[in-house]
């Protein structure tokens, strides 16, 4: 699965911009989640932007690497630190220092395992979420992701508060029904991985 990263990397080196976008789109989520462990969303986005811009601008100097992800994670971390230090000053650091190989970072393994286990566990249920009627889907997101009150959900969906409650309730029931049909296998798998308490 990681092989693909490395072949994209080589294509970028030879000047293929589509590969740059593919690599970017493939890894943005992971990089973003990793970066926001250290700093604010805005700074992470700036760092990711700068990092990919440099990859492209200095593509001829890219070294072949056995793990593109590993490179990108560590580079991003350095860049966040650098951007923090060079805050409000013109950046004068030597871009090359970014590409010096660094000693293995144990947390890197964890990140990859963590995010992939997470993906496996939620992908199915999430897919079912997308099958919900649109208003139930929205109501569930507003309630549990955006943390809106029923009053606010009612406002946004232009219904009364009771209807907002009903949308959430029905959304949950339907989602549960979907999940019960096919999740049995996954439940057993996750039980062994998931630390419930």
């Amino acid at each position: 699965m990681f092989d693909e990263d490395e072949s994209l990397w080589l294509k970028i080196k030879s000047g293929d911009r589509e590969s740059l976008e593919m690599l970017y789109r493939k890894l943005f989520g992971m990089l973003y989640r990793y970066g926001t462990k250290f700093t604010s969303s805005k700074l992470v986005k700036d760092a990711i932007h700068d990092m990919f811009l440099d990859i492209w601008n200095y593509r001829e100097k890219l070294q072949p690497t056995t793990s593109v992800r590993y490179y990108l994670f560590t580079t991003l971390k350095r860049r966040i630190v650098l951007n923090n230090q060079n805050h409000r000053r013109f950046s004068t650091f030597n871009y090359k220092s970014d590409w010096i190989s660094v000693a293995a970072d144990s947390s890197h393994e964890e990140i990859i395992i963590e995010s992939e286990c997470d993906d496996a566990r939620t992908r199915k249920l999430r897919k079912y979420m997308q099958d919900l009627p649109p208003r139930q889907y929205e109501a569930l997101l507003m309630k549990f992701y955006n943390k809106l009150s029923y009053r606010e959900i009612a406002d946004k969906l232009d219904v009364n508060e009771q209807s907002a409650r009903n949308l959430v309730q029905r959304g949950l029931e339907l989602l549960r029904k979907y999940s019960q049909i096919t999740l049995l296998g996954l439940i057993l798998l996750c039980r062994t991985i998931d630390k419930v308490w």
Partner: peptide, 11 residues
């Protein structure tokens, strides 16, 4: 827990 996880994951 899974339901909460899925909704949050989707968001």
């Amino acid at each position: 827990k899974r339901l909460i996880g899925a909704i949050h994951g989707e968001g």
